[in-house]
C-alpha cells in the first residue's frame, strides 16, 4: 500500500510540468524513504532525476517498495483538474493497475477522485556517481530561463564558460552571435538580491550544450528560486533545482563534441 499526501497540488503540478516534455512515461520508485524517478529522454541525451523525501509530505506511507509506471501526459491532465491549493493524495494498493489521485479543497467541501492507469515500462537505468565538479554556478532560475530564451533567438547551441570572474553564456547562428556575462558575487545575501550569481571554481571549464534541452530544464524554474549548474570536463553537465525542503530535480546533459 502506498499513500502520499501533499498540502498543495501546485507543487506536484510544477514537478510534473518540469519533466513531462523530456520524459513521456516514467517509473516512479516508491520506498520507505520517499519517491525517486530516473528517466532518459527519447534520444538518450538528457537524464532526469527526481527525488522527493518522505518527510516532505504531510502524510507518507509505503509498506513495501513498489515501482509504478506512469504516463506523464495523463498524470498532468489529471493534475489540471486540481485547484492549486487543493490538498492532493496519491494512493496505490499492492499490484494495483491504477494510481488513485484525489483532491480536496481547502474548505474541505469538494473532493474529486481520478484514476490513472499504470503501465509496465521497461527502461535501462544508470548509476550516477557523486562527482567532484570543477565549477558550480549558482544563479537565479528565472535568470537562467531568460538567458536560455534569449540565446534561442540566435542559435541552437550554447557555450557555458565558468571562470573565477563569473559565467559567460554564448551562442552563434546564421543571424549573428551573442553572449551574456554574469559576474561572480562573493556572497549572496539580501543586499545583492535574489538575482545574484556565484561561481565556485577549482578550474575554469567550458561546455557546449544543445539549447533545446536547456529550454526543457528551464521548465523547472517555477519550482525553485535558484538553479545550480555543475560542470566538469568531459562529463555531463548537471543542473539542479531544489524542491523546497523535500528534495530536488536534477538534469544531466551530455556535452556536444566538435568533430
Amino acid at each position: 500500500m502506498i499513500e502520499a499526501v501533499l498540502p498543495q497540488a501546485s507543487l506536484l503540478k510544477k514537478i510534473i510540468e518540469a519533466i513531462k516534455e523530456l520524459v513521456s512515461e516514467a517509473n516512479f520508485d516508491f520506498s520507505e524513504t520517499g519517491i525517486r524517478l530516473q528517466a532518459m529522454d527519447k534520444s538518450h541525451i538528457a537524464l532526469s532525476f527526481l527525488h522527493l523525501r518522505n518527510d516532505g509530505f504531510s502524510e507518507y506511507r509505503c509498506d513495501r517498495s513498489q515501482t509504478l509506471g506512469i504516463n506523464l501526459e495523463s498524470f498532468s491532465k489529471v493534475l489540471k483538474c486540481a485547484a492549486n491549493d487543493d490538498q492532493v493524495q496519491i494512493k496505490a494498493t499492492d499490484k494495483a493497475e491504477s494510481l488513485s489521485i484525489s483532491f480536496e479543497s481547502t474548505a474541505k467541501d469538494r473532493v474529486s477522485e481520478f484514476n490513472v492507469k499504470l503501465m509496465d515500462i521497461d527502461i535501462d537505468s544508470v548509476d550516477v556517481p557523486d562527482m567532484d565538479y570543477q565549477a558550480t554556478v549558482n544563479m537565479s532560475s528565472q535568470e537562467f530561463a531568460r538567458i536560455v530564451r534569449d540565446m534561442m533567438t540566435i542559435g541552437e547551441a550554447i557555450t557555458i564558460d565558468a571562470t573565477k570572474q563569473g559565467v559567460k553564456f554564448s551562442t552563434s547562428g546564421d543571424a549573428g552571435e551573442g553572449n551574456i556575462l554574469l559576474r561572480h558575487r562573493k556572497t549572496i545575501d539580501e543586499e545583492d538580491g535574489p538575482s545574484s550569481t556565484s561561481v565556485e571554481i577549482n578550474e575554469p571549464v567550458s561546455h557546449s550544450l544543445a539549447l533545446k534541452f536547456l529550454a526543457n530544464f528551464a521548465k523547472a524554474a517555477p519550482l525553485a528560486d535558484r538553479v545550480s549548474i555543475n560542470l566538469i570536463e568531459d562529463a555531463p553537465v548537471m543542473f539542479e533545482f531544489k524542491i523546497s525542503d523535500m528534495g530536488h530535480i536534477r538534469f544531466y546533459l551530455a556535452p556536444q563534441i566538435e568533430e
Partner: peptide, 14 residues
C-alpha cells in the same frame, strides 16, 4: 560538425 553523445555513455548501467 557537432556530435551529441548519448548520456548512457557516461554512466554505468545498473
Amino acid at each position: 560538425d557537432i556530435l551529441q553523445t548519448s548520456i548512457a555513455a557516461y554512466f554505468a548501467a545498473t
